[in-house]
Design a protein around this nucleic acid. Sequence first.
DNA 1: CCGGGCCTCCCCCGCCCGGGGGAGACGATC
DNA 2: GATCGTCTCCCCCGGGCGGGGGAGGCCCGG
Lengths: 226, 226
Amino acid sequence: MIYAGRMPVTVLLVDDEPLVRAGLRAVLEAQSDIEVVGEAADGAAVIPLVRRLRPDVVAMDVRMPLLDGIEATRAVLRTVHEPPKILVVTTFENDEYVYEALRAGADGFLLKRARPAEIVHAVRLVAEGESLLFPASVRRLAAEFGDGGGNRAAREALERARLTEREGEVLRLMARGLSNAEIAARLVVGTETVKSHVSSVLAKLGARDRTQAVIAAYEAGFVTPG
Amino acid sequence: MIYAGRMPVTVLLVDDEPLVRAGLRAVLEAQSDIEVVGEAADGAAVIPLVRRLRPDVVAMDVRMPLLDGIEATRAVLRTVHEPPKILVVTTFENDEYVYEALRAGADGFLLKRARPAEIVHAVRLVAEGESLLFPASVRRLAAEFGDGGGNRAAREALERARLTEREGEVLRLMARGLSNAEIAARLVVGTETVKSHVSSVLAKLGARDRTQAVIAAYEAGFVTPG
DNA sequence: CCGGGCCTCCCCCGCCCGGGGGAGACGATC
DNA sequence: GATCGTCTCCCCCGGGCGGGGGAGGCCCGG
């Protein structure tokens, strides 16, 4: 995984709170293979900075004045050639905006309360090109309810993830390896209906395809392996 | 899941050993919702029996005289309209023939040494239309190595599943949600190569698509959730 | 030396998947 | 009564996926 002599990962910090920027900078600059190349306090300043600095990763807050993280993400991806990886930074897990940002093309998200090691890890991962989805956030949902796996716990977690009851059913069947047609047969509805639910699930989980959604289900303890 | 007043699941037993047939019959007939409607001692007798009895499920031995389970499975699926679900019965986990049978279109497999409750469960599941893949077999691989999750244990399990080293790498990346193109980039090979490996993995695990393969990986402890 | 397994890559092809957008029906809520 | 969310279904469309078959290079073991 670690290639000797590789160039350091360059990061642009975008957050309206200086304290947060300072914290991120401190955490990231402690790593020899990560370099913070710039900072911005709002979304509007991002585009020119990205063009000038060409960072590998943009750590982007969601809630910001002038231009929020979602719009900023869209703007960067739409206007910049070979855009940087975008890591959405947020205070709350299950922030609705986070999912919108992921839909807008962000590569991952990160909780501000995450431990330094996690933050560093997240930056390295997105820099490597990996879609860093549902890492701490979704997983923590299950942890909040005991050992996550029981029926009630899973149901609670599902609500927190803002999945509707039907979407939860669909996700569970997806996690058993069923195709859309098979799920439709099982639920006695049309395949188009299932497709609709699947799309909602993918959007809400920030997953790109059903495989990632199933991974999220396992990671969150929605399904019990073994 | 259980619909009141549903018709019982009808099963045809195909095995060259009378003892095995008797055992299966005893186990299955103990259930009020399962009915054994016929028996055959070799693969050649299966087709006419299926046409006449129209069973919901065929419990099919792999190693049989005249026509083995693989050829019999192919024959049934090719010649019978609205074919029954086929549950492959075998003595050995990791029997190469099992995977071939799954590729031939079988809906699941079952170990003869399985507990009665597992056997009943398997029949009900395939009757419901679920592809019953890698249930005991793959899962047991991990169980043989402690709590299955460590690096060495997973590697050993992979070998048992007859996956090559490269196929194991590909499976791990699949289980992280990567697309074929992303895997290709990560491994620095062509996408056609990755597709080739993925196909091998699917065949060996008896999975229909990458999602089922990832489920197998989680179930077997190839990847550690949480 | 000649298989055989593995890794690599190629072609063609059909299908399922997922995105986008829209719409009607229902119940709850305001 | 109007609005919102959910569930249901529809259209079009592109792209990734998976199957099938083939092929060349490599190393190891018979």
